[in-house]
């Protein structure tokens, strides 16, 4: 197995890799490419930024727990993440990020730090009803946005074409339906799911 020194070394490597990824997503030809199409922008760049913040936080403070039995700190951070998510779901915010440089910096910073990090800190601290509610609301939101992006006769983001927008709507619907099927299955067979995942992990070793 790894020694403590090895673990520390790998942690540093991971951190450096995460920072490189951050820079690449935000300031490189890749970022221009990711922002050239609304589908890549919404479905790849923004989620990637969230994941980045999430893993960065997990890497820096792996065993962070609140020193209290209350669920409030967790709830507060998840609520913060939700509000920032709502902000970035508004098409106008995306437009602004593409038009004004300062707004793009706000995007590159706020999504990892105000969505990814709070989720990493808070998601497992809140009760399961809260989490369930957020998941259902997220699925509902994807269905609504999917419908809106498919059917809106007007371009919601003035930087992107109508065709890409409608196609993004379809992707939202597909993601929402996939999530619903996944969570329904999990509710019906919570143990089996964990079992199948575990056996896969062990068999792949």
């Amino acid at each position: 197995m790894f020694s403590n020194r090895d673990v520390r070394f790998y942690n540093h490597v991971n951190l450096v890799l995460l920072f490189i990824a951050w820079i690449t997503i935000c300031f490189s030809p890749i970022s221009t490419w990711l922002e050239s199409d609304i589908r890549l922008h919404m479905l790849v760049q923004l989620p990637a930024l969230v994941l980045l913040g999430y893993f960065l936080c997990k890497q820096l403070v792996p065993n962070w727990t609140v020193n209290s039995t209350s669920k409030q700190p967790g709830a507060a951070s998840v609520v913060l993440a939700l509000f920032v998510t709502i902000y970035w779901m508004i098409p106008k915010s995306l437009d602004a990020a593409l038009t004004y440089e300062i707004h793009s910096y706000i995007k590159y910073l706020s999504i990892p730090l105000l969505i990814g990090v709070p989720l990493a800190l808070g998601w497992h601290q809140v009760g399961s009803i809260f989490r369930g509610f957020v998941i259902i609301e997220l699925i509902a939101m994807l269905l609504r946005l999917g419908w809106l992006y498919r059917d809106s006769p007007i371009r919601l983001c003035s930087n992107y074409g109508l065709y890409e927008q409608n196609s993004l709507g379809n992707y939202f619907l597909i993601i929402a339906i996939t999530c619903s099927v996944y969570y329904s299955f999990k509710c019906f067979y919570p143990k089996n799911l964990r079992l199948t995942l575990k056996t896969k992990v062990t068999s792949s070793k």
Binding site: I136, E137, I139, A140, L143, R144, S152, I154, S180
Partner: peptide, 27 residues
């Protein structure tokens, strides 16, 4: 009923979006 309410929550917000953004006319 969870499914029913999920669908209700979608269609209610869609109706609200239409109320304040009439250019969007759902089927």
């Amino acid at each position: 009923n969870t499914l029913g309410i999920l669908v209700g929550a979608v269609v209610l917000i869609i109706s609200l979006i239409n109320a304040f953004y009439p250019a969007f006319q759902p089927d």
